[in-house]
């Protein structure tokens, strides 16, 4: 048992277990009715009964998330490169980017339904709008934080601009890019669900809306469990890619204990 407590990967599960027990106890002790907060067992029962449906509805949400995330990387990283390398582009683009982030995505999501219908596209766009900003901000920082001496050294070697970018700036920025991708993927999940809320007939967001309408709280909670599982799995996937791509980085060395290291 003490061995279980000391292994890092088991800790989050133990915490979940403790929360579940407290949750159940609270319902019993305070007599909370089923239509306000369902008991953990009722949620588990819904998951057991409805998992084929929930799994099927997860797919559109995953597609929208991945689509929005891919767009975030494909557009966000080059945009960050331009901002990092040109004062002119930075002065034009950066204020606009910050401005675009202050618009609530929930408020403009219905607009995309009007423009692009009920398909996957509007969800992808909302996921992208939420996911790309952290990538831009963090990647700009990564490119800009190359040491002055490092740049001077490369220049003294007669480095071309391309070599400077490929051999020095880009590898230097990779840790920042990866950490922003982790933030981005979780935000993209949120974006996909928001997109599904405002107009769709598929996806976890749609299930949540429907269950809410029917006062089926156990189903809502079951859908939330699936939603958080999607987020966690996608996060772990990026974490794994990161470990393969930048094994040299401080965060990947054995001596550092990261809370996100679920080994």
């Amino acid at each position: 048992m003490s061995k279980l407590f000391s292994s890092t990967w088991a800790r989050p599960f133990l915490l979940i277990l403790i929360v579940l027990v407290l949750w159940d106890l609270a319902i019993l002790v305070f007599g909370i009715p089923q239509y306000l907060v369902p008991a953990p067992l009722a949620v588990a029962e819904q998951i057991w009964n409805e998992w084929p449906m929930l799994l099927g509805e997860s797919l559109p949400t995953v597609y929208a998330t991945l689509g929005g995330f891919a767009l975030s990387v494909v557009i966000g990283v080059p945009m960050a490169m331009m901002i990092a390398y040109s004062r002119l582009i930075e002065s034009y683009l950066y204020p606009l980017l910050v401005f675009s982030q202050s618009i609530p995505k929930v408020a403009i999501a219905p607009l995309f339904v009007v423009w692009f219908g009920f398909g996957l596209l509007p969800k992808v766009i909302v996921a992208f709008l939420l996911g790309f900003f952290p990538i831009v901000v963090s990647t700009v920082m990564g490119f800009k934080s190359v040491e002055v001496d490092m740049v001077d050294l490369a220049r003294s070697m007669g480095s071309t601009r391309l070599n400077m970018f490929l051999k020095i700036s880009l590898p230097h920025a990779l840790p920042s890019i990866f950490s922003s991708m982790k933030v981005s993927i979780t935000l993209a999940v949120v974006g996909a669900v928001v997109g599904e809320f405002v107009g769709s007939n598929a996806g976890i967001g749609y299930v949540l809306q429907k269950a809410n309408g029917n006062f089926d709280l156990p189903l809502m909670f079951a859908a939330l469990v699936f939603l958080s599982l999607i987020g966690v799995l996608l996060f772990l996937a990026i974490d794994a890619i990161e470990r393969l791509a930048i094994p040299w980085h401080v965060s990947q060395r054995g001596t550092v204990h990261s809370t996100m290291r679920w080994r």
Partner: peptide
């Protein structure tokens, strides 16, 4: 401009971590 015939050492080693 940068010379072919010159090598430079800075205060920090500025080695590439990767």
């Amino acid at each position: 401009g940068p010379q072919r015939n010159v090598g430079i050492v800075f205060q920090s080693a500025v080695l590439l971590a990767w």
